[in-house]
């Protein structure tokens, strides 16, 4: 505990004083959830990019994206990964955060699925059914509602139930819901028992829209511009590396997750890259706003950090 106090004091001092960039290694805390989508930072760290940039990166464990925002506000995290909806809502409620990087973008690792042996074969069959979702009023729900409406399904007949993402495969298997959002590794884990009803839930928002962003607290970032830029350089290099080399992603995920190696190799990985995909951000926000999942539109200028 004493060490964490010292570390806390250390980077509290760092975050208050202007950063000269000449110190040996700047301690930076990156808070994230242990899912495959957040592997880019780990890949970059393993490749030594952060070290070379003079940054001592600590990757901290979180469980929920909303709590990551709290940690960013409290200053215990310098950077954190949050879903696009969470980022938008925080900004709408006036929390001083901004987006700096792409955590991951969709590449088929999240799907709306149903039992292969069940009665639901097409989107139209979803009418009147119970759908299990890992989060409510978010981009996933907005995406599938848009596609359901397009297929002529009256969405008022559908019941959306909130179920914690790891429990969704079990809920679908045991008939708690008739269709569910299944994220990897649940897709691999189900084998051929599940069939995708909506294989690309985020299609309405563009080609492989960005689902999750790295955020910072705005005033901290403005005071430490140089550190943030160095971090982003290293981070984006790691993201590009992750995009090209799946084996490194597998290795990174294995270091923080319990997913067995064989599953990881079969899994559909999210997409990594340094492209902020602002167009997809706009489209996602618009789609969520149209369903009143967001109170208002969040503009790109409001949301993205400009050094």
């Amino acid at each position: 505990m004493k060490t964490s106090w010292l570390a806390g004091i250390a980077f509290a001092l760092l975050s208050v004083s202007p950063n000269s960039g000449a110190s040996a290694a700047d301690a930076v805390v990156f808070g994230t959830v242990p899912i495959a989508g957040t592997a880019a930072a780990r890949v970059g760290k393993d490749a030594g990019y952060f070290e070379k940039a003079g940054i001592g990166l600590e990757i901290a464990n979180a469980v929920q994206f909303a709590n990551i925002v709290a940690d960013i506000m409290a200053g215990t995290y310098n950077f954190g990964t949050v879903s696009v909806g969470t980022a938008a809502q925080a900004i709408i409620e006036g929390l001083p955060i901004k987006i700096v990087a792409n955590t991951y973008h969709s590449a088929g690792e999240q799907r709306l699925m149903a039992l292969s042996s069940g009665p639901i074969k097409t989107i139209a069959d979803l009418k009147g059914k119970r759908i299990g979702l890992g989060g409510l009023n978010n981009n996933f729900q907005a995406g599938i509602i848009a596609q359901m409406k397009e297929a002529g399904v009256d969405t008022s007949t559908v019941t959306f139930t909130l179920i914690s993402p790891p429990d969704l495969p079990a809920s679908l298997r045991n008939g708690v819901v008739e269709a569910a959002q299944i994220n990897e590794p649940g897709i691999v884990g189900a084998g051929d028992k599940f069939k995708a009803v909506i294989p690309e839930p985020f299609k309405p928002f563009g080609e492989n829209p960005c689902n999750n962003y790295v955020i910072v607290r705005t005033n901290w970032a403005d005071r430490n511009k140089e550190l943030v830029k160095r971090f982003l350089t290293a981070y984006n290099r790691g993201a590009e590396l992750a995009a090209t080399d799946k084996s490194l992603v597998v290795k990174a995920v294995m270091s923080f997750s319990e997913i067995p190696k064989e599953t990881l190799e079969k899994m559909t990985m999210p997409g990594f890259g340094s492209d902020l995909r602002k167009e997809s951000f706009k489209a996602t926000v618009q789609g969520m706003y149209d369903l009143r999942f967001l109170k208002r539109i969040v503009t790109v200028d409001e949301a993205f950090w400009a050094p």
């Binding site: 959830v33 464990n61 997750s257």
Partner: peptide, 18 residues
């Protein structure tokens, strides 16, 4: 909430589908 305790490891195993 995450962090360093055994509770986080339970959640981690859950996220890993094991």
């Amino acid at each position: 909430a995450g962090g360093k305790g055994i509770g986080f490891l339970i959640v981690n195993a859950s996220f890993s589908g094991v």
